[in-house]
């Protein structure tokens, strides 16, 4: 499934990320476990938590990140 479709307060594992340097730069890689904190409406950003750190990922990119539920 896509990260944009992730449910609140559920944990997922990242399967693939699009080749956007900004994602690698802040440390989002395949294999990581993420918790979806908030989903913004109107294809807005997704707030995820990766080991106590919160990230905001724009809706357009969150559509391209594939995840699986843990």
């Amino acid at each position: 499934m896509k990260l944009k479709e992730g449910k609140r307060k559920r944990h997922y594992q990242i399967l693939t990320v699009p080749p956007v340097p900004a994602l690698q730069n802040i440390g989002i890689y395949p294999g990581q476990r993420v918790e979806v904190r908030f989903q913004y409406p109107f294809s807005g950003p997704v707030i995820v938590r990766i080991y106590r750190r919160d990230f905001a990922i724009g809706g357009a990119i969150a559509e391209q990140i594939r995840i699986k539920e843990l």
Binding site: R53, A56, I57, G58
Partner: peptide, 9 residues
């Protein structure tokens, strides 16, 4: 399109 937002809070 605008560059997508990826930021750490």
């Amino acid at each position: 399109a605008p560059a997508p937002m990826v930021i750490e809070l």
